[in-house]
Amino acid sequence: MRLVIDAGNTNIVMAVHDGTGWRGIWRISTDAQRTSDEYAVWLFTLLKHCDIDPAGITTAVIGTVVPAALYHLRRLCREWLYCEPLIASSDLDWGFEIKMDTPSEVGADRLLNTLAAHQIYGGPLVVVDFGTATTFDVVDQDGAFIGGIIAPGVNLSIEALHQAAARLPRIAIGRPQVVIGRSTVPAMRSGIFWGYVGMIEGLVARIRSELGQPMKVIATGGLAPLFAEGTTIFETIDSDLTLEGLRLLALRNPTPSLANDWKRQPTGD
C-alpha cells in the first residue's frame, strides 16, 4: 500500500491506496510546527479505525506547497513507516511538458492536478482548484501545462473584508437565494458567492477565447461542490484530483531508497 500526502496551506490530506482503490482519506489542519510524532499518533489512530495495518504501507509520496511542513512529514514516513517518500517537484518525470518561464516556480499541486486531469479526462482542459488560492490550470491537448491564473481564495477574500472594513463581520460562505442583499450579511454573501461565480465564468471564457478552442472545465477543492450550485460551467467535480495526481506521479518515478540510518531495526532477542 502507498501513503499519499497532499500538504496545502490550509489542510493536509493523507490517504492510503491499496493498488485498486482508496482505503481511507483523512484531513488535518496545516501546522508547520506539528511534529512527526504528532502526525503519527493522528494517522495511526485513523488507520486502526479503518482496519489498515501500518506495516502494509511500504511506499509514500508527498506533494506540498508548504516547505516548512515537509521536514516533519518526511520524518513521519521514515520513522514510523520505514520508507523514503517521493517528493513531488518539477524535476521529476511528469510525462508532460511544463511550458512556463520558470518551471520550478509552479506549485506541485498545480502540476499534480494537470497530470491527473489529463489522464482521466483528456485535453484541452482547465482545472479550477478552490484552495487557499483559487487557481486555474490550463492544459493543452497533449497534456502540457501551459500556464494559468492565480486569484485570491474565497476564505482569504472573506477574511480581508472583515479585517479591512471595521463594520463588516466575518461571515460563513453559502449560496444566497437572491442576488440583492437586503442587509449587510446577505449583501456580503452575495458578493462573495456570485462574485466568484462571475469571476470563474468570465476567466474561463477569456481562456477559451485566447486559445480559440472549447475546453473542458474540471473543478476540485473543498468549495467546488458549493460553487457548482451556481454555474453550469463545470463538466465534473473531482475532489480527489490532487491525490490521484500524486499516485500517478509515484507510478511514473522510481521509489526512493531509505538510508541505512532509517531502516527498520530488528525486534526480539
Rank of each mutant, 00 (worst) to 15 (best):
M1Q: 01
M1V: 11
L3D: 08
L3I: 06
A7C: 15
G8K: 09
G8R: 00
N11V: 00
I12P: 04
M14A: 13
M14W: 15
H17R: 00
H17Y: 12
H17D: 12
D18M: 06
G19M: 08
T20C: 06
G21H: 02
R23F: 00
R23A: 10
R23N: 14
G24L: 14
I25K: 13
S29L: 14
T30F: 07
D31M: 04
A32H: 08
Q33L: 14
R34E: 09
S36L: 01
V41I: 14
L43I: 15
D51N: 15
D53M: 03
D53T: 14
P54N: 10
A55R: 09
A60L: 01
I62C: 02
P67C: 01
A68I: 06
A69C: 09
L70Q: 15
Y71L: 07
L76D: 04
R78V: 02
Y82F: 12
L86H: 04
I87M: 05
I87P: 05
A88C: 06
S89G: 11
S90T: 10
S90E: 11
L92I: 07
I98V: 14
M100F: 10
S104Q: 13
S104G: 11
E105D: 14
E105N: 14
G107K: 03
G107S: 09
R110S: 04
R110E: 04
T114M: 04
T114Y: 07
A117K: 07
A117S: 14
H118I: 00
I120Y: 08
G123L: 06
P124N: 03
L125W: 03
L125S: 11
V127L: 06
V128Q: 10
V128F: 04
F130M: 03
T132Q: 03
A133N: 08
T134P: 03
T135W: 09
D137L: 02
V138I: 14
D142Y: 06
F145N: 10
F145E: 09
I146K: 14
G148T: 05
I149Y: 11
I149C: 12
A151Q: 07
A151L: 00
L156T: 14
S157H: 06
I158A: 12
A160E: 01
L161C: 06
L161N: 05
H162N: 14
A164I: 08
A165Q: 00
A166I: 07
L168E: 09
I171L: 12
R175G: 00
R182Q: 12
T184F: 10
P186Y: 05
M188A: 02
G191S: 02
G195K: 09
G195L: 02
I200W: 03
I200Q: 00
L203R: 00
A205P: 06
A205N: 12
I207M: 02
R208M: 12
S209V: 02
E210D: 15
E210I: 03
Q213D: 04
M215S: 05
M215Y: 10
I218Q: 03
G221Q: 07
G222F: 11
L223A: 00
A224M: 01
A224V: 01
P225F: 06
L226G: 08
A228P: 02
E229M: 12
E235H: 13
D238M: 11
L241Y: 04
T242E: 10
T242I: 12
L246Q: 14
L249T: 04
R252I: 06
P254E: 04
P254K: 09
P256L: 11
P256H: 02
S257F: 01
D261T: 11
W262G: 01
R264Y: 01
Q265S: 13
P266C: 12
T267H: 13
T267V: 15
D269T: 12
